[in-house]
Design a protein around this nucleic acid. Structure first.
Lengths: 113, 113
DNA sequence: GTATGAAGGTTTGTGGCACAAACTAGTTTG
DNA sequence: CAAACTAGTTTGTGCCACAAACCTTCATAC
């Protein structure tokens, strides 16, 4: 193994499963680029059904990675979601472990035994 | 959203779950750096129990991402695992989607609206 | 005013999967 | 022969992602 490889492996094994799940990773990524997002926007941007989105948001909220604000737009309920500071930190940490991993993988799909 | 963000999100949502699982990602990463690895080595390097490792290897083999060779080392059975070309390709494809994702995430954990 | 459908979600049900404990099979040691 | 070790596989379980079903309110048609 290359030097540093074990550290990258350990990083992979220690990945935060909450962030690692693709649906939640998509949500956090979208949220990291805006001040907030509406439920309906996330639904489209992340290609999730309402039910699925709802349950993922609940988990992210329970972990403190997003903040959910329910308000009324006229007479209709509207849910706004924003990433928290903890959420940004979690995403950054996740990103860094992925970077470490990616650096370990050979670029070409060739036998380098 | 930044330009290209939706493509990165789509990439995340389309991630190969087989490769995305941390344990298997660790296995493939180790294997990508050697011609083959023994069961016992993977067990240590990937910090997996035998049972867990065994089942992950079976899934990777069923998908054609690794090749498993059973032989005898003296009188003892020994299992050798190697990544296949398909495995390398899957890992490369996975890596590229992660790269696209990482480029979308702001570097600093600061409010950038 | 009352079906009909859409917006905006939440709750419920279920199939699949990661994980470890228990088990199998053979080997070495005392 | 019995105990303990090596090398793995099979079994059992608890969690979780996902979507279907459901709820409530508003808009529109009849």
């Amino acid at each position: 193994m290359k030097p540093g490889a074990q550290a990258a492996i350990d990083g992979v094994l220690g990945l935060d499963r909450l962030v690692h799940e693709p649906a939640r990773l998509a949500i956090l990524t979208v949220l990291s680029q805006a001040e907030f997002a509406e439920f309906g926007f996330l639904e489209m941007a992340c290609r999730l059904t309402k039910g699925n989105l709802s349950s993922h948001l609940s988990k992210l909220e329970a972990a403190g990675l997003v903040a959910i604000e329910k308000r009324f737009q006229g007479k209709r309920p509207q849910t706004r979601v924003a990433i928290t500071d903890a959420g940004r930190e979690a995403l950054t940490a996740y990103r860094e472990q992925l970077s470490a991993l990616i650096r370990q993988v050979p670029k070409k799909a060739a036998r380098d035994g």
